[in-house]
Amino acid sequence: MAGIDGIDFLQLDMPAILLAVLAAVACAIPGNFLVLRRQSLLGDAISHVVLPGIVIGFLLSGTTSTWPMLLGAGAAAIVAVALIELVRRLSGLESGAVMGIVFTSMFAAGVLILERSEARNVHIDVQHALYGNIEGTVWLEPASIRDLLDPAILATTPGEIARLAVVVLVIAVLVVAFFKELRITTFDPGLAATLGFSPGLVSAGLVLLAALAAVAAFDAVGSILVIAMFVCPPAIARHLTDHLAMQVVLSVVAAVAAALSGYVLAAFVPLWLGYGHAFNVAGAMAVTAGLMLAVVMLFAPRYGWLARRLAGSRSAGVAGSPGTVAD
C-alpha cells in the first residue's frame, strides 16, 4: 500500500470518497423513478444545462462563490424542463428528440456566453462542468480518526460535503414521505388520477427532485457522473428485484459500491501498480457503475442473461422430452 498513509487518507481521500458517495446516492434515489418512467434522458438534459446556469449565475453576481452559481444552475434546470415541456406540446415530437433540441441549444448558448465574456478568465470552464473536481476536495482539520467525533472539527466540514449531505437527507425524506404517490403515478397514472393523486404534480415534483440532486452533485462530481448515477444503480437494482422499495434500497447500495470501487480503481490501483499518477476519479466511477451493470445483466439470478438461457433451455427440454406427454 505504497503512498497511502493514515493522515493522507483522512485529509485527502476520505473527503473525496464521502463527496462521491453522497453525490451517487443523491442521484440514484430519484433515478429509480426516472428509469421506470422512461425519463432517463432527463438526467442527461439537466446535467448539460447546468453549464449555462453557472455562467449566467457568475455574470449576474460577479463572483465565483457557490450560491449564485448553484442558484443559476437550478434556474437553468427549471427553465430547461419547462422549455422541453413547452416545445413538446407545441411540436408533438417525441420527448427524447425535444430534450436533444433544448439541451444542446442551451449548452451551446452557455459555451458561447462563457467564451465571449470575462467568465473565461476565472476558473469556470467546460471541462470543470463535465468532469467535476472530486480530487480537489480536501479537509485539513482532522488529524486523526478520533478528530471525526470532535464537534469543533466537524464544524469545519467542507461546504460541498455538508451541502450534499443535506440534499441526500431531503431527497430521502421526500421519497419516503411520498413513496405511495410516486409508486402509483409511476406504474399506473390512470389509476392514480382516478384515486385523486395528480400524476402531473407528482411528475413535476420528481423532476424538481432530480434537478436538485443534479445541481447539488455536478459541482463536485461533474455532469457525466451525475448521468451515470441517475441510471446505472437503478438499472442494476432493477435486475435484482421486482419490488420498488427494495429496488430503491439496492440502488443506493449499488451507488455506494460503484463510487467506492471507482475511487479505489482510479486513485489507489495505479499507485499500487507503481504508476506515479492517479486517474480521473469521476470517470472511473462511471466505468465501474457500467461494469457492475454489465455483470448484473449477465449473471443476475432471475433476469440475467445466463439465468434466462438456463431457464429457456430447461423449459424447452421439458416440452420436447417424450416422457412429459404421457399423461
Binding site: V35, V231, A235, A286, V287, G290, Y303
Partner: peptide, 28 residues
C-alpha cells in the same frame, strides 16, 4: 433488447460509461 430497461436508459448507460472511460484515458 433486455426487457428490464427502456432505450432511454440504454442510451444514458452507454453514454456515461463510455464517456467515463474516455475521462480516465484523458487523465492518463
Amino acid at each position: 433488447r433486455s426487457d428490464r430497461l427502456g432505450e432511454d436508459s440504454a442510451i444514458a448507460v452507454v453514454l456515461s460509461t463510455f464517456y467515463g472511460l474516455g475521462m480516465v484515458l484523458l487523465s492518463y
